[in-house]
Nucleic acid binder design. Structure first.
Lengths: 198, 198
DNA sequence: GCAGAAACAGTCATCCTTGACTGTTAGCGG
DNA sequence: CCGCTAACAGTCAAGGATGACTGTTTCTGC
């Protein structure tokens, strides 16, 4: 009787639970890692039945592959606004700060987690590889947008991949090392670009 | 009767099987990753009984912690000789090549695997953190040995952590990306140091 | 308003891993 | 040579994860 009050189409119902499941999966990956992301745990967090979970994602593998896309998409939504703010400020330092946001977000932790798991899972590896290729292009465009004045500098092409790799490495080290060292790294990256570009 | 031919002390027997177990664990980590490194798989590869395994390492956690030390130690034995050769050649380029050997060795893959797992395992994290602190000092000394002529250069302190972080990041990316890009990276790192130091 | 399909609910068998446990053998001190 | 202890061997119970399976509800097309 009361249930009749809420009336949704099949597509709406389906999309809603699917979204809940994916959101729970992402949370799970970020908080307890790949190993901790069991289908049971996802099911608990999403508050769906086992049937619902298995209906949308017949296997754990498919769930994780879907999570890859979800993670990268969510990442875009985090980075986008930050870029806009940084463009108004402008300059090398603000650009580094924004880039670091991308690599340091909780979502990046989730991506990292799947990245590690991808080594033994061909399906997952393929999904990650594809998204990574896209991400590389986007990061490149992001940099061009952040530092329009330096795009034509002879050292621009030299510095970018190194900075990006360094951020990758630093993000990874963050698992073990203290936050304190992060500030030093940020300063170092800024100094490097000033050294190369100014 | 024939068994009497081989006579070893308790300590020798013990050390031998312990070494076999640890070697198998390292192999396992490198080949099938942290998740694939089950105690059963290690036991199979080391060709020891369950009793032997559990005798030396009462729990899987202790086994993995021991593997951390083993991995870093093995890494030293790989890098050491390479450094000696590089010192004879000398120069920025040879130094980069040696550093990359350290980050690109199969052992580094194993370390990476445990590094990822360390996020949800306090015991493991502590072990990794400790070894990482040592490794940082050693890498630093290694660089000083590789590039004695540049140690006092004003940009030396700036460049080192960035190169090291970049190698970390690149090593990680290697899981997904092709080897082809590695050559470009190596060239980029060399060029950066030439740019900064020459 | 009714057949059919999609979305969801809940249970269960199977498999795998872990570490506890008991039994056996090889070296060591006296 | 003998008792003892460390090193090793092999089995087993418990727990947890996965996905198959059956039942139920909600929507949609006609």
């Amino acid at each position: 009787m009361t249930t009749a009050a809420i009336r949704r189409t099949q597509a709406e119902r389906s999309a809603a639970t699917r979204a809940r499941i994916l959101a729970a999966t992402v949370d799970c990956l970020v908080e307890v890692g790949h190993a901790g992301t069991t289908t049971l745990e996802v099911q608990r967090r999403a508050e769906v039945s086992r049937g619902a979970l298995l209906h949308h994602f017949p296997s754990r593998a498919e769930l994780l592959v879907a999570a890859v896309y979800q993670l990268f998409e969510a990442q875009r939504e985090v980075v986008g606004p930050a870029v806009l703010r940084a463009r108004e400020v402008g300059g090398i330092d603000a650009g580094i700060d924004v880039l670091w946001i991308a690599f340091n977000s909780p979502l990046a932790v989730g991506i990292d987690e799947l990245w590690a798991a991808a080594r033994d899972d061909a399906e997952l590896r393929e999904a990650i590889a594809k998204q990574d290729r896209n991400a590389r292009v986007e990061i490149r465009n992001l940099c061009d947008a952040l530092w329009p004045g330096y795009v034509d500098h002879p050292n621009y092409e030299l510095a970018l991949p190194i900075i990006i790799d360094a951020m990758h490495g630093a993000a990874r080290a963050r698992v073990v090392r203290s936050d304190r060292t992060t500030a030093k790294r940020l300063a170092g990256w800024k100094q490097l670009l000033h050294e190369l570009w100014d």
